[in-house]
């Protein structure tokens, strides 16, 4: 423990990140540039989320990490171990126990409370990026609220697939102002973003932080005649029988066998405990 400063980053760096976080909270949905550091893991593995977590963790916190909803996948295990080692904080797999939850691509099924912080790992923070390659231009578009282009993407979806086929990283508008990429969470999770917990988004490679204060209004973009739909597989969980949770499809053999299970492992385990 003595080898590292608390939570790996030095205090000046954490202060710099906290300033970016506070600015992000003050302007919900606005992408705040920050001086992202090299972390001892490759870009794309959650370097942004890790830096945000490092900046908000205190010794009293209980930390949970999920990757696609699961606590026991490589990314989640590595990051959890990283903070166990460098910050010596308590860790948990139970959503309700955690005070800081770092997540990759999911929001936990259990409703979060005002005492919790949800930290997202973000690969590409700019929702307009694939339509407009110029950063100068996209920043201008955000500044001037020129968001027509975002609907062009949805239009293309409908004209090609007959429905809005964007299933993850579904663009949202924050408090009627900034259009934001919610990170690649399934659009099933979009309605959950109006929550009691603080939500922080960190993109390490792209050097951006953005944030949502509690109870911020989050509206998923859509057309009048093609309204937003929070979709999931039309099945129940093959393990716990949940009808309301987001499901992963697992291939079980090479003969077409498949089953659907909750992507949120903690939620599924809790429900199994209640059944037996």
């Amino acid at each position: 423990m003595n080898e590292y400063n608390f939570a790996y980053l030095d205090e000046q760096t954490k202060r710099m990140i906290r300033r970016a976080i506070l600015k992000g909270l003050a302007i919900p949905g606005y992408q705040v540039p920050f001086a992202s550091r090299e972390m001892p893991m490759p870009y794309g593995w959650g370097t942004g989320g890790v830096q945000v977590s490092a900046a908000v963790l205190t010794p009293e916190d209980t930390f949970k990490v999920i990757d696609q909803g699961a606590d026991d996948t490589t990314n989640a295990v590595s990051i959890r171990k990283f903070f166990e080692k460098t910050a010596n904080v308590a860790v948990t797999e139970e959503t309700g126990e955690a005070s800081v939850i770092q997540t990759r691509h999911r929001i936990p099924e259990q409703v979060l409370t005002e005492d919790q912080i949800l930290v997202y790992q973000v690969p590409i923070p700019e929702p307009l990026r694939f339509l407009e390659p110029s950063e100068v231009e996209t920043r201008k578009m955000h500044a001037l609220e020129e968001y027509g282009l975002m609907h062009v993407k949805l239009y293309e979806d409908i004209s090609q697939h007959g429905a809005i086929a964007t299933a993850y990283a579904y663009p949202v508008k924050i408090e009627g102002r900034y259009v934001m990429d919610p990170s690649p969470i399934p659009k099933f999770d979009n309605p959950k973003m109006e929550m009691a917990a603080i939500q922080l988004f960190g993109a390490g490679r792209e050097q951006r932080i953005y944030a949502l204060p509690p109870y911020t209004k989050v509206v998923s973009l859509d057309f009048e005649d093609f309204p937003f739909e929070a979709s999931k597989a039309d099945q129940v969980c093959g393990v716990c029988g949940a009808e309301d949770s987001y499901l992963d499809e697992l291939i079980t053999d090479d003969e077409g066998g498949r089953m659907f299970v909750c992507s949120d492992t903690d939620y599924c385990r809790t429900r199994q405990g209640n059944i037996t």
Partner: peptide, 11 residues
């Protein structure tokens, strides 16, 4: 695009 840029939201 121009229609959507000036606020058209009906596909």
């Amino acid at each position: 695009e121009r229609l959507m840029a000036v606020g058209a939201r009906n596909y």
